[in-house]
Amino acid sequence: MKLVLERGDFTRTFHERLKELSGQDLFTCYQCGKCSAGCPSAAVMDAPPHAIVRLAWFGQEDDLMKLNSYWLCAACLTCDLRCPKGIDISRIMEALRVMFLRPREEPDMVPPESLPKDMLSRIPQQALVAGMRKYTK
């Protein structure tokens, strides 16, 4: 990959949106990798959590959106617990999911009432929440 940082296209807007949605300051990250070291999903992610923060740091929104990492985050919060700078990486993952979903034309959510009742009792809470989230348009 090659990243060209022209002045003007390197703007704060992406950072600011991410900060607003996640409440986290990317610039405190050391890039020590402790989040990725303990992440149970890192092995199957396109890019492990610390690399997600790195790309976000450089404002590479388009590249980030193509990755599966934030969908595979199980929100176990191990990264948040271990981070030496107190960054809640899971919140950044959540913010990325929000950023992906919000601009979509068609509602992509799965309303709970559309699911069969017996399924509702079987699917994990996380999946249920994910199915209805954040389409606010």
Binding site: M1, K2, L3, V4, L5, E6, H50, A51, R54, F58
Partner: peptide, 9 residues
């Protein structure tokens, strides 16, 4: 760290 080449004017 991200494996990218960087170009800055």
């Amino acid at each position: 760290l991200s494996g990218q080449t960087i170009e800055i004017p």
